[in-house]
Amino acid sequence: MSRRPYVREVPRTTWFFKHPRYMRYMAREVTCIFIGIYTVILLVGLARLSEGPAQYEGFLEALRQPGSVLFHLLALAFSLYNTFTWFNVAPKALPVQVGDEHWPDSVVSGGHYVVWVGLSLFIRFWAGVL
């Protein structure tokens, strides 16, 4: 009797269709495309700000294009998904043990959400939006 193990190759470009949890993972990973493009938009805004009022006004004008509004809506959805996935797994990377017990994951995650809501409200308030 001879051994002849059969190897099943994982398809490199389509493996994530195999299971919903892989699709959720890829959805999380592609948030970087939207957050990355958004960061570049912020960088361009900073550049225009440094160039003077007229240039900065031009940047705000460009922001008001329909394509920009659409991008913002999409990017916001992906960004929120990134936030939720990040907070939900935060207790795995940073578990908190006090005495003989670990804090429940829900407490660590919940703490992140509370800080997030507070910080977001603060930044809105700071920006003059109520």
């Binding site: 299971h19 949890r21 892989y22 797994v89 795995k92 990377a93």
Partner: peptide, 26 residues
């Protein structure tokens, strides 16, 4: 590891390997 988290979903003994790996990274 890219923290897919599938290992922890399927572990029959609730070992939560994903948490171990993230802690090793930190």
């Amino acid at each position: 590891c890219t923290f897919v988290g599938a290992c922890s979903d399927v572990c029959p003994k609730h070992v939560d390997p994903a948490s171990a790996l993230q802690q090793v990274k930190v």
